[in-house]
């Protein structure tokens, strides 16, 4: 089709101007890009600095820690980690924590899935009130339930077991799971269910074979939140246990010895509590990055 190469001086000038314009246009977004990166980096430094300090201290001997401030471990040592990983009073704390967290995640998701399905697909007597009541449990301060829980679990003989903590955390984790899952399920068109039933699927088979795979990213996100709130909770977990099922977080509070706080061990133990979280985020990162919108629209 018709086009001409710039032969007239006018056209040459025009092209030069356009090229100039192009350079200017490109320059501006680039500087904005760098400002964005700068701000993001500043925030990440803010997030990492306290963690770095914890890490730094965990590799120092207690004499170095108390001897004066050093920005990195000058006498690098893994003695605290060695201690934690070899003394059963320490490492059992991790085992206990992970045990009740996993139990809680399993219980919560198993009972929340059908319940969320019911809320997202059916109307029934009292559905709205029931949903609201569920959400109020999210708002119950654990401190309120400390004493009754202690008495309840003591009476039924579950005190100082993993199950006790797992069940106690159901108080806020099941409502949370129902809430998140209900949102995801409502995003799946009902026609999917109807088609499956017409195709002769029974309800349980449909639910497991078709429905659950369709909301897999919702389940991923839910499990992430379940892990998060069960792993970080301390008040109930430490109240309902004494020795056999004691979580790592409460083992840590006992680092105060006769010679003051064992800072190195505290830092090393703290560092180790961060690791499972990182693993969990790593697994769900794509579900989160894919984008989800919690709640009813």
């Amino acid at each position: 089709m018709s086009h001409s190469s710039p032969t007239t001086p006018d056209a040459v000038r025009q092209r030069a101007a356009a090229a100039d314009n192009r350079r200017r246009r490109r320059a501006r977004p680039a500087s904005r890009q760098w400002r964005r990166r700068g701000l993001m980096a500043a925030y990440i430094v803010f997030v990492l600095l306290p963690i770095y300090w914890l890490l730094n201290m965990s590799f120092q001997s207690n004499t170095e820690i108390l001897g004066g401030l050093t920005l990195w471990p000058e006498n690098f040592t893994v003695e605290h980690y060695a201690k934690i990983l070899t003394e059963s009073s320490w490492y059992m704390g991790y085992v206990n924590s992970i045990a009740y967290v996993l139990m809680n995640m399993l219980i919560s998701i198993v009972v929340a899935l059908p319940a969320a399905y019911a809320f997202s697909r059916y109307q029934f007597i009292g559905d709205k009130h029931l949903f609201f009541w569920l959400l109020t449990n999210l708002m119950a301060p654990p401190a309120v339930f400390l004493l009754p829980y202690f008495q309840l679990y003591y009476t039924v003989g579950l005190f100082d077991t993993h199950v006790a903590v797992a069940l106690a955390h159901c108080l806020f984790n099941i409502p949370l799971a129902v809430w998140i899952l209900e949102g995801f399920m409502s995003g799946v068109p009902k026609e999917i269910d109807e088609t499956a039933f017409i195709d002769g699927y029974s309800f349980p088979r449909f639910f497991v074979k078709i429905f659950i795979p369709m909301i897999s990213s919702g389940i991923g996100v839910t499990l992430f939140f379940l892990f998060m709130f069960s792993w970080v909770e301390l008040l109930l977990a430490s109240t309902l246990t004494s020795t056999d099922a004691q979580p790592i977080a409460s083992v840590m509070t006992q680092t105060k010895g006769a010679s003051g706080i064992d800072w190195g061990a505290l830092a090393a133990a703290g560092t180790l509590t961060i690791l499972p979280g990182i693993v969990v985020v790593y697994f769900v990162r794509n579900h989160i990055a894919k984008g989800f919108a919690l709640g009813r629209t």
């Binding site: 086009h3 056209a11 025009q14 092209r15 356009a18 090229a19 192009r22 246009r25 490109r26």
Partner: peptide, 11 residues
């Protein structure tokens, strides 16, 4: 080109 002016770099 819009009316003979290169607009490649224009957003």
């Amino acid at each position: 080109l819009f009316d003979g002016e290169v607009v490649n770099a224009l957003p």
